[in-house]
Write a protein that binds this DNA or RNA. Structure first.
Lengths: 249, 249
DNA sequence: GCCGGCTCTTGATGCAGCTCAACGGCGATT
DNA sequence: AATCGCCGTTGAGCTGCATCAAGAGCCGGC
């Protein structure tokens, strides 16, 4: 099994519904998918939509966790900062993903847009009201949460056990799969994260990420199109490297 | 903030109740804490208790996820195996922690006892029935899950950004705090995990873990008592090293 | 008591990835 | 079109940790 497959499972679990989040107007993949019409009306009445530019913060680490967010367009990164200033990217989020849901009073990490996009937010306490009215919604959050936990464990495995090239290969494949799951057509994917972002996600320096990507390019495994375009030419090779069955290890 | 503090938060969240899980007979910290008497009766009727020896498996990676477990005595480790045989310890669990709760059909990781101990297990579908009867129980699982997710993110941060000694220091402190939270008295803590277990948890080799522990001992920060006893002599030094505010980084 | 196996420790060596540095490409601004 | 700042690439050297190896302490079995 691909070690990042649980990420796929998480997203597949959210991608089936074709409901429309009334207020947001977007195809709702995250919050609204398996809900009935009455619930959607309630949520739409309680939520607000906001447009954001690339690099805008959605919320900051330490902010009071007043809202829960759904990313309706664009791509974002989740970051945590250590006391000494070292920073880590904890994850990336795509259109349809839910952000910032926590029972704590403060956000343990920050979220920033990597591209332009829009978010849809609902007050935490209104969501609690909806939980009481629609137990299915709470169940849905529990499932999402457990799946995200499994994805975190995959990432822990990758950080603890994978070489630099293995990590980058796994990342590129999971990025492509995430976009395919969102009905992306064509062989060229978006890669809006910088080398530094990827490095901070994978526990590597930007130079090491750059070298791995160059190596894949030299081997004919990938092709870069402009500064944002990524094409997986030999996906099997990348999956082989990124799946953790290194021959003779 | 200590980067492993969310682990503490997770456990504090479960440590407040003094209820007794009727069938298990143990102080229930995990499943049963904030529940009313009727719910406890229901759960006790549906759960079974088992005694296990050190090294016994509670469940295996890939097993059908038929049960949800509470560790009532002892210490366990959670492990994942990669296709090529590389293994990683993704976490440790203590008395009172809940194990193996997942909406998936299979366990994504295995769990093995590190010490003798007992577990209390309940069938997954009976738990679902209880969820329907007691929505508060489901809410409790959601909170636990979000907190565990935060703990995973701390671990991701440690694996991606911490040096070997920083990781070992953070691990020793969090282990001591976990035992203090469980009303452990006295300055000497249990360290039932081997150097290899710790190394597989922290993404290090057993030799590197051993060297870090020896270095702490030489600096007078810790003392070892027999093969299982650990005393933190200078906890502040360990916290300083393990909290991620390395001076000048 | 003696032996075999396991864990821990410590030393020597090698290498993957970090650090430091230089440069080229591209978009934005004016 | 010129300039600036950011991002990416590549090279050279260094270092922290892995790897390999040897030996010591401890425990259970006989």
């Amino acid at each position: 099994m691909h070690p990042l497959d649980t990420t796929r499972a998480l997203m597949e679990g959210t991608g089936s519904g074709a409901d429309i989040c009334l207020r947001c107007g977007s195809r709702s993949i995250g919050l609204c998918a398996p809900l009935d019409a009455g619930m959607l009306d309630d949520m739409a009445g309680d939520s607000e939509r906001h447009a954001l530019d690339a690099r805008d913060a959605i919320f900051h680490q330490g902010d009071t966790a007043r809202f829960v967010y759904t990313l309706t367009e664009g791509m974002a990164r989740l970051t945590r900062v250590l006391p000494d200033g070292r920073q880590a990217v904890i994850g990336f989020r795509f259109a349809g993903d839910t952000l910032g849901f926590t029972p704590a009073t403060e956000h343990a990490f920050g979220a920033e847009m990597l591209t332009r996009g829009t978010i849809c937010r609902i007050e935490r306490r209104r969501l609690d009201t909806l939980f009481r009215r629609y137990p299915l919604l709470e169940r849905r959050f529990l499932d999402l949460c457990v799946r995200e936990l499994a994805a975190s464990q995959d990432h822990i495995l990758a950080l603890g056990r994978f070489s630099a090239e293995e990590r980058v290969a796994a990342f590129l494949v999971s990025l492509a799969e995430a976009q395919e799951r969102r009905n992306h057509a064509g062989p060229v994917f978006d890669l809006p994260a910088t080398r530094a972002d990827i490095g901070e996600f994978l526990g590597l320096t930007l130079e090491t990420v750059s070298r791995a990507i160059s190596a894949f390019r030299r081997r004919g495994w990938i092709r870069l199109h402009g500064h944002n375009g990524l094409e997986l030419v030999d996906r099997a090779a990348l999956i082989g490297l990124g799946s953790g069955d290194r021959p003779g290890a």
